[in-house]
């Protein structure tokens, strides 16, 4: 990846953040914090990593993405729209009656959504099923599942981890958006997830760590993931909740609420300024 590629990704990620804020503001509800922390990884996956075609969203041989932390769909919708799966204008209808953009991902009605999700812990299991199907069919596609750090408190995540390891699903990459905060406070204060790296290793995963906002590091770990044979991969991505909007960064209160008009303007001004600086 050269400097111009990185610059393009940064600009795209900034647009993902702009549309994320746009969506949540218009919905008057939603989850901006974890959406903004995940925006860079989603941008890299859809614009650099995954084999997907917006004109053929159901291609049986496409790579899959399962947003196991389904509440962060505002960033996924923004990413899919910018990739061309549907018009960006749709984002303004997020969470409204009649919208194809539900409060949590709905594979039946949204082009590009590979799995309905939202009840935490369940997406990773579905991703295992997809990865297993690829193995059975001999299709070479890969499956990426994004989990929240708080989500890893769900027992089902570890049932799925055992399954992925037992069936040697080396076409599965579980990415943990480790922003350190969940609804009731910091992850460490709420339930404790320390040594997540060791936990995944003990469950048979090859584990990589990365800065979830650094595209060169993201590229590096995703490339390394492709070299791993005979076991699944977990990527622990250290991120900042609310990344890109100054007053939201590392603030647990922005897990699940929408900005008011003034806050919306501040957020858009900040993100537009970041975009302008990148374009300069």
């Amino acid at each position: 990846m050269n400097k111009s590629d990185i610059s393009e990704l940064k600009k795209t990620a900034c647009r993902v953040r702009l549309w994320t804020v746009e969506g949540v503001f218009n919905a008057k509800s939603g989850h901006p914090g974890g959406s903004l922390s995940a925006a860079d990884i989603m941008t890299y996956l859809y614009f650099k990593e995954m084999n997907v075609d917006p004109k053929n969203p159901k291609d049986p041989k496409r790579d899959r993405f399962v947003l196991s932390k389904g509440h962060c769909c505002p960033a996924l919708y923004a990413t899919l729209a910018l990739k061309g799966f549907f018009p960006t204008e749709e984002i303004k209808s997020l969470r409204h009656v009649g919208s194809m953009l539900q409060g949590h991902p709905d594979m039946k009605n949204t082009p590009g959504i590979d799995m309905s999700s939202g009840s935490l812990g369940q997406g990773i299991s579905a991703a295992c099923g997809m990865a297993l199907s690829a193995k059975l069919s001999g299709d070479g596609y890969r499956v990426y599942a994004m989990l929240g750090d708080g989500e890893c408190e769900e027992g089902q995540v570890w049932e799925a981890a055992m399954f992925a390891s037992h069936y040697k699903l080396d076409n599965l990459v579980a990415i943990v958006d480790y922003n350190g905060l969940q609804i009731d406070g910091s992850v460490e204060d709420v339930a404790g997830l320390d040594k997540l790296n060791e936990k995944f290793k003990a469950f048979g995963f090859e584990v990589f760590e990365t800065d979830g906002h650094d595209f060169e590091q993201i590229e590096d770990v995703l490339n390394k993931a492709k070299e791993v044979k005979g076991k699944p991969v977990a990527i622990i991505a250290k991120t900042i909740k609310g990344k890109g909007v100054s007053y939201m960064e590392n603030q647990v209160g922005w897990h699940g609420k929408a900005p008011n008009a003034e806050q919306y303007k501040t957020a858009m001004d900040e993100l537009n300024a970041q975009l302008k600086a990148l374009e300069a």
Binding site: D114, M115, Q122, I124, S125, G129, S133
Partner: peptide
């Protein structure tokens, strides 16, 4: 729980 989720992914 995981079995049902895996089944969902296989069906998808």
């Amino acid at each position: 729980g995981n079995m049902i989720g895996v089944a969902a992914g296989l069906a998808a």
